[in-house]
């Protein structure tokens, strides 16, 4: 298994290189540059800025220089727009906040999603099942940029619950963003759990367990759920990667100082180093999550072996 893990980690290198190359090409194809201002910046200043940030060098050299900087010094470059910050500052200061919101939201989504999915499955075709699944479809289809403002309007401005509309710093600031962020993943996980459970509880070994006279709770949790979780884990891994790298909309709606916003703003600001840093970060997180998911299969199902 370690050999497998190592091979997968090594595979990260070509993956990241591909992401790097693609983003590099894309931003050199995009019209409009970081120094385009309403009043034209004098040539001398443009030249100086280009020299300062190495943009005067031939493209192939810019391509190599950045790679060398990242590998030898872990230098992700400066921000063109926020000159007092480097890309490393931006990731270092804002990524932990996104992780925090993401992990809490994921914990909520997993706990509630799996519970609701199991309940729905064992009460299949009852009113409870219908209500839960309606809720799940709602959660999976309504986007965060609708749910966020809806929650603010309903919870704070209409019901008058004493929560802040946005901001950062206390647990109270986390309530609405976590709910907004958790709703979609929770709904998806509930649906996966339900259909997976429905398949498993019809399997022969469950019938055997029942025939042995095991209590229903043990059958559901220890026998059925453990097997039913394999497809759920696959989805959860991908969702987790997306959730911890920060949701642009959730961070935007609730003014969270997270990293997700930069994925959008760095493009409109033509802040290339920030865009590159964030892209590489996301690619790494997603690749690592996939690896963890694949390794987790082994624990859940002893039949799976890594070659």
């Amino acid at each position: 298994m370690w050999k497998y893990a190592l091979r997968r980690i090594l595979l990260l290198i070509p993956t990241l290189l591909a992401v790097y190359t693609l983003v590099f090409i894309l931003f050199h194809l995009t019209p409009g540059g970081p120094w385009d201002k309403e009043r034209p910046v004098p040539e001398s200043v443009q030249e100086y800025l280009n020299a300062k940030y190495g943009l005067d060098k031939p493209l192939w050299q810019q391509y190599i220089d950045y790679l060398v900087g990242v590998i030898t010094r872990f230098d992700l470059g400066p921000s063109y727009k926020y000159t007092h910050l480097t890309v490393r500052d931006i990731i270092g200061q804002f990524f932990p906040n996104s992780i925090q919101v993401g992990l809490i939201a994921m914990a909520v989504a997993v706990t509630l999603g799996i519970t609701l999915g199991v309940l729905s499955a064992i009460k299949q075709n009852t009113v409870l099942d219908y209500v839960l699944m309606f809720f799940a479809i709602f959660g999976a289809t309504v986007p965060t940029f609708v749910i966020g403002p809806l929650l603010v309007w309903l919870v704070i401005l209409t019901l008058g619950v004493g929560l802040p509309t946005g901001g950062w710093g206390t647990p109270r600031h986390l309530v609405l963003p976590v709910l907004t962020l958790a709703l979609g993943p929770m709904a998806v996980l509930a649906r996966y759990t339900r259909s997976s459970m429905l398949e498993v509880i019809r399997a022969d070994y469950i019938r055997t367990a029942r025939a042995k006279g095991l209590p229903e709770g043990v059958i559901i949790v220890r026998h059925a759920l453990k097997n039913a979780l394999i497809p759920v884990i696959t989805v959860a891994g991908v969702i987790l990667a997306v959730v911890v790298t920060g949701s642009f909309y959730v961070e935007f709606i609730f003014s969270i100082p997270g990293i997700g916003q930069y994925f959008v703003t760095s493009v409109s600001n033509r802040d290339y180093p920030v865009l590159m840093g964030v892209s590489l970060l996301f690619a790494t997180v997603i690749a690592v999550m996939n690896l963890i998911v694949d390794l987790a299969y082994g624990f859940l199902d002893p039949r799976i072996r890594y070659q």
């Binding site: 403002p149 603010v152 309007w153 704070i156 401005l157 802040p164 509309t165 946005g166 901001g167 961070e251 935007f252 709606i253 609730f254 003014s255 100082p257 916003q261 703003t265």
Partner: peptide, 20 residues
């Protein structure tokens, strides 16, 4: 100064109405 994301005018108004 409370820092909002760029373009977050709706959020500013909500925060204003909530006396933040």
């Amino acid at each position: 100064y409370r820092i909002f994301p760029e373009g977050a005018e709706e959020q500013v108004l909500a925060a204003y109405e909530n006396d933040e």
